[in-house]
Simulated assay, not measured.
Amino acid sequence: MPHRSVRHRPRTALAALATVSLLGTAVLTGCDSGSDRTTKGATSDAGRRPAAAPVWDRSPESVAAVGDSITRGFDACSVLADCPEASWSTGTDRSVRSLAVRLLGASGAAAHSWNHAETGARIAQLPEQMALAAKEDPDLVTVMIGANDACRDSVRGLTPVADFRASFEAAMRQLRSAAPKAQVYVSSVPDLKRLWSTGRGSQLGKQIWKLGLCPSMLGDADDMGASAVARRAAVQDRVIAYNGVLREVCAKDARCRYDGGAVFDYRFTGKQLSQWDWFHPGRNGQARLAEIAYRNVTAARPPG
């Protein structure tokens, strides 16, 4: 989606009042808040104050997206091409009803959302994307990254977990330095092994996979020998480790919410996968991702 230099809509008086109220509370979950209780000449009883609720606005008014080909809607509309209008995060396609559309309405999404994801992006590129997102001064930033770190030519080429952590931490610092109040919604990395298991039922899909799509998982799709099985298991373990990093780093930020593994756990079927590569989400799959995100962003509590 091209960059839009559009100012945010003026907030309503109620929204502004709610924001002031939230900012008036302690930001850290460990802080306390409450009114003073006094008795005859006594000072307030601070020990009885209730703990402050974590800061999370369930109705953000602008959305910026960072990530990889899934957020760019790759292969959702046509073969080997980005289709940002079908993006689960910021797209405007009516059949998808992206997170931005569900939060802001169609016109609001068109004016107040930005897609800085890049097809082929890995976690090392996330700090740069975060810097671009921060310039939009968004209320919410969505993150979906990591599949390309696991989709390499071989298991040796997978991004080390320590490097993955360092890049994600750097991306969060980049955002916080420029947009300290922006909320962050972090999607788990999809279950690549389940996508392999689902997509390998398509002869056309397997032919496309031979062009080099995620060879660490999809290469020699019908090979069930010990070496191939071990290779896929190693990729699966790495994806699980990446999701652990996303969860742990996000948990340290009061304005970050991880999806609790919801995308990893989602059982994509052929109906949700792109008809051109049987790996990326098609429009139906993008809509399912949007549903998951909207449910988690607007929930009173973060996913367990």
Rank of each mutant, 00 (worst) to 15 (best):
V63L: 00
A64N: 02
A64P: 04
A65F: 09
V66L: 00
G67F: 03
G67K: 00
G67I: 04
G67N: 04
D68R: 06
D68H: 09
D68K: 11
T71G: 08
F74L: 09
D75Q: 08
A76E: 03
C77Y: 15
V79D: 12
V79C: 14
L80I: 15
A81M: 12
D82T: 03
C83F: 06
P84Y: 10
P84W: 00
E85W: 12
E85F: 14
A86T: 10
S87V: 02
S89Q: 03
G91N: 01
G91E: 00
D93H: 12
R94I: 14
R94N: 14
S95Q: 12
S95P: 04
S95H: 10
A100V: 06
A100H: 05
V101R: 03
V101E: 00
R102N: 09
L103M: 02
L104N: 01
L104H: 05
L104I: 04
G105I: 09
G105A: 04
A106M: 11
A106I: 01
A110E: 08
A110L: 11
S113N: 07
W114Y: 15
W114T: 12
W114F: 14
W114N: 14
N115Y: 07
N115G: 00
A117G: 03
E118I: 15
E118M: 12
T119E: 06
T119D: 07
T119P: 05
G120A: 08
R122L: 05
I123M: 10
L126P: 02
L126E: 07
L126W: 05
P127M: 14
P127C: 14
Q129K: 13
Q129Y: 08
M130A: 15
L132Q: 08
A133Q: 04
A133H: 09
A134M: 09
A134C: 03
E136F: 09
E136V: 08
E136N: 08
E136Y: 01
D139C: 07
L140A: 08
T142C: 07
V143P: 05
V143N: 02
M144E: 05
I145W: 05
I145T: 01
G146F: 06
G146P: 08
A147L: 04
N148A: 09
N148S: 15
D149E: 02
D149G: 08
R152I: 15
V155H: 04
R156Q: 15
G157W: 00
L158V: 12
T159F: 00
P160N: 07
P160C: 00
V161L: 09
A162R: 13
A162I: 13
D163F: 09
D163E: 15
F164R: 04
F164A: 06
A166M: 11
A166T: 10
S167D: 11
F168E: 02
F168G: 02
F168P: 03
A171V: 06
M172T: 11
M172S: 14
M172K: 12
Q174D: 10
L175A: 07
L175W: 02
S177K: 14
S177F: 12
